[in-house]
């Protein structure tokens, strides 16, 4: 059928990035198919419309109809949604994403944060947890962490790093390659799947696999008026496409982690598990990180404890 509705979509992923291919484009394409071609897209990739931290506002204002919303960029507008980024919530994308997405769909504080920004969430996926991607040999004892400088996204990740005596370092992503090359940092907390896109594998000597360091969480949101102005069948197509994307992307992410780790081994990178004594320290730290999060969110008058309890109940083991 001929496209009756042409919508604009913005993200900030570079060309061919798996989150664009298997997340953003997948959702757009499924929506197109499920609506029998009634919906089609004008796609602005790679931050053409706004930086990652500006897409939610662009959706809110209707400067773009729909777009990628990375939870980590919006601690001001989507504070409670950051519960999904806390360390130790889910070991895989498959274990966490269905629960988070269910919570985001239901009437509740997480969905309301999007609606307050005039945006309707269409899908939400928790990626694979961050791991220690280091230009050093594996960190196999708690002492190995002491004095290591590690790039981190801040917040709860800093607490877990500091619990073992490592030093969290903040820097913009484009500086990371050079910083790791020159030894400004010893490594970075990074999702396994993001290592290749930033070419950090060229500099990496070891990668952990079982560290509970928190997760990056990605969603798609659509402008509320745009969504409500669509025909019921079109709305349903977008909704259904969202459901399918959550499953598809979470499966892809988990399968791809395995594939990437294989490639790393073939490249001569050491892929390893933290031993129990390290995990114990990390788990103590993440309890502390949770408490810190609840305290700071509650200070703002937000129902943090309830959200955290609800969220943890929905996580699969």
């Amino acid at each position: 059928a001929r496209a009756e509705t042409v919508l604009t979509f913005a993200d900030s992923f570079p060309d061919g990035h798996y989150l664009a291919e298997e997340g953003m484009k997948y959702w757009m394409q499924r929506a197109e198919e499920l609506s029998d071609g009634a919906i089609s897209w004008t796609y602005f990739p790679a931050g053409q419309i706004a930086k990652a931290g500006g897409i939610l506002t662009a959706v809110r204002d209707g400067r773009v109809d729909a777009g990628y919303v990375g939870i980590g960029y919006f601690s001001d507008k989507l504070p409670l949604n950051s519960v999904s980024m806390l360390p130790g919530m889910a070991p895989t994308a498959g274990a966490g994403s269905p629960g988070y997405w269910a919570m985001l769909k239901a009437d509740g504080p997480l969905r309301q944060e999007f609606l307050d920004s005039n945006a309707v969430p269409m899908m939400g996926v928790m990626l694979d947890p961050y791991q220690m991607v280091m230009a050093t040999p594996p960190l196999t004892t708690p002492e190995d962490f002491v004095g290591k400088k590690v790039r981190s996204g801040g917040g709860a990740m800093n607490l877990t790093l500091e619990s073992l005596g490592a030093t969290p370092v903040a820097m913009p992503a484009p500086d990371m390659y050079v910083a790791m090359e020159r030894g400004t940092v010893d490594g970075t907390l990074f999702a396994i799947n993001s290592v290749k896109p930033y070419r950090v594998d060229e500099l990496t000597e070891s990668v952990s696999t079982n560290g509970p360091f928190g997760t990056f969480v990605i969603t798609i949101a659509i402008n509320k008026e745009t969504f409500e102005g669509l025909a019921p069948a079109e709305q349903e197509a977008l909704r259904q496409a969202g459901e399918e994307t959550v499953t598809h992307l979470a499966n892809y992410v988990d399968a791809n982690v395995g594939k990437r780790l294989e490639e790393f081994r073939a490249q001569g990178i050491t892929v390893y598990d933290f031993p129990p004594d390290v995990v114990t320290v990390l788990e103590e730290a993440l309890t502390e990180a949770e408490a810190d999060w609840v305290r700071r969110m509650s200070d703002r008058g937000l129902p943090a404890a309830e959200v955290l309890a609800d969220f943890k109940r929905r996580m699969q083991p």
Binding site: D15, A46, P174, V178, R199
Partner: peptide, 21 residues
């Protein structure tokens, strides 16, 4: 090197940033 533009090209295309520089 260093070069902001070459780093951005490297990220956009997944080419080796080290080799680009």
């Amino acid at each position: 090197p260093p070069s902001i533009i070459l780093v951005i090209y490297g990220i956009l295309t997944e080419q080796s940033i080290g080799k680009l520089l």
